[in-house]
């Protein structure tokens, strides 16, 4: 199908023009390593679109389709339906969208996909703002974080995507992070083996937008897990299970001080952020116990 000009290991070219220290690049490599060649990707415009390349060049060996921002889930559902007509039951159809394309603009098509029960794996890499267009705030931006549209810090909390997915009663949804690659691989493999709509919400460090050093990308996402700002859990048929939860949450300052986007945060917002994080963690622990 494609002419290979420069060979690479795996399914993605090595020289992709993602920023140095980009978490999204690592996520897509991990996901495709777990899924294998027999995958069809749907990518909306955004940072991930640079894998589709420009003009005649591409950075992916798997078949990929670049759609519009608001309907990646609908495109993926359509491709799945087409495959079923052709009698193809082996290919995995994956939608790989950012937080803007999932939580804001693409939420309606994602909701429709989950309602109809299409056999699609939807992956949302969450870098907590519209990074590709110049760091505008999205509904995934955490409380108090600076973006160009929230110069004094975002006044409200982050949207709970997995809560929305669980309310649809889908068979599998999980959160993952680049801090734990093994856990992410396990979840992708598990999602592949399940029939029906699946959702993975993956925390994705963005050195450009978060104002962290490129070398600290993994460290920042590890801190997010340790402070509870990002909780690793999965929900299978309504049963919530936390994956290696920290015994005691660290103070949120350890996470925020590594990033310039939280440099202007005031005392009040910091207390509110800490309260929201603790509340969310305790809520999930309670849900696991039930």
């Amino acid at each position: 199908m494609i002419d290979i000009k420069k060979e690479s290991r795996g399914y993605i070219a090595h020289g992709v023009s993602a920023c140095a220290g980009c978490g999204m690049e690592l996520i897509l490599r991990t996901v495709l390593n777990a899924l294998g060649q027999d995958t069809t990707l749907v990518i909306p415009p955004g940072c991930s679109a640079l894998f589709c390349g420009f003009g005649k060049e591409t950075g992916l060996k798997v078949s990929t389709f670049q759609g519009n921002l608001e309907n990646s889930a609908a495109y993926a559902a359509g491709i799945r339906a087409g495959y079923e007509v052709q009698g193809n039951n082996h290919s995995t159809v994956v939608a790989f969208a950012g937080d803007g394309g999932t939580l804001d603009i693409g939420l309606q098509s994602l909701s429709g996909m989950m309602e109809r029960g299409d056999d699609v794996l939807y992956i949302c890499y969450d870098n907590e703002a519209y990074m590709n267009t110049g760091i505008q705030g999205s509904s995934a931006t955490p409380l108090g974080a600076w973006t160009t549209t929230t110069p004094t810090g975002k006044p409200v909390y982050k949207k709970d995507l997995l809560g929305i997915a669980m309310a649809h009663g889908i068979p599998y949804c999980a959160s993952a992070s680049v801090a734990n690659i093994k856990d992410m691989t396990k979840k992708v493999e598990k999602a592949k083996s399940i029939q029906g709509p699946k959702l993975l919400h993956i925390h994705c460090p963005c050195p450009t937008g978060w104002g962290s050093a490129p070398s600290k990308s993994i460290e920042v996402s590890k801190k997010a897990v340790q402070t509870g700002a990002w909780v690793l859990y999965e929900c299978e048929d309504g049963n919530i299970k936390l994956n290696n939860p920290p015994k005691e949450l660290k103070a949120v300052q350890e996470y925020t001080k590594l990033q310039k986007r939280f440099s202007g945060i005031n005392e009040e917002q910091l207390v509110a952020l800490q309260m929201g994080i603790t509340k969310n963690f305790e809520r999930l622990m309670r849900m696991q116990a039930e």
Binding site: M1, D3, K5, V16, C52, K56, E57, K61
Partner: peptide
């Protein structure tokens, strides 16, 4: 001058120069 909407060449950029 781009022919068509399909990509058919798998290529890599020289990101080592960054």
């Amino acid at each position: 001058k781009i022919q068509g909407p399909c990509a058919y060449e798998f290529d890599s950029g020289n990101t080592g120069s960054w």
